[in-house]
């Protein structure tokens, strides 16, 4: 599954999608992505994505709970994820629509 997703499994996008239903800390994000998408984000990859998203203002860290810090989407993150998901939905609809006559 990991290989099949290819570029659509871009770590930043996966993290944004994981945070769409609420704040999560690092381990919860990796577990969620592994369970829902089948992609294993390594710790270095995850924190590179978190740092990049935080720097771009798409996510924000909440007060730490012990040594775990949950992250949540910002308004800009919600807008970015919405735009990306809409674009991907259009592409999926286009692809499936054009493939249907060929496979029918």
């Amino acid at each position: 599954m990991t290989d099949e997703l290819g570029r659509w499994a871009e770590p930043g996008l996966l993290v944004l999608a994981s945070l769409a239903d609420g704040a999560k800390h690092g381990y919860a994000i990796t577990a969620d992505i592994a369970a829902e998408v089948g992609v294993a984000l390594g710790p270095g990859t995850l924190y590179a994505a978190l740092a990049r998203l935080e720097e771009r203002g798409l996510i924000e860290g909440l007060p730490a709970e012990g040594r775990r810090r949950p992250y949540r989407l910002t308004a800009a993150g919600v807008a970015e994820l919405t735009a990306q998901a809409t674009r991907m939905r259009k592409l999926a609809a286009l692809s499936l629509g054009r493939l249907r006559p060929a496979t029918a």
């Binding site: 599954m1 990991t2 290989d3 290819g6 499994a9 871009e10 770590p11 609420g22 704040a23 999560k24 800390h25 381990y27 919860a28 990796t30 577990a31 969620d32 592994a34 369970a35 829902e36 089948g38 992609v39 294993a40 984000l41 390594g42 990859t45 590179a48 994505a49 709970e65 775990r68 949950p70």
Partner: peptide, 22 residues
């Protein structure tokens, strides 16, 4: 693939919820 480990692993499902311990 450059930013992923390429290996699948199964995490405890309860850990997907916010604040749950591993």
């Amino acid at each position: 693939m450059s930013e992923r480990t390429g290996r699948k692993w199964t995490a405890p499902r309860d850990a997907r919820r916010e604040g749950h311990e591993s």
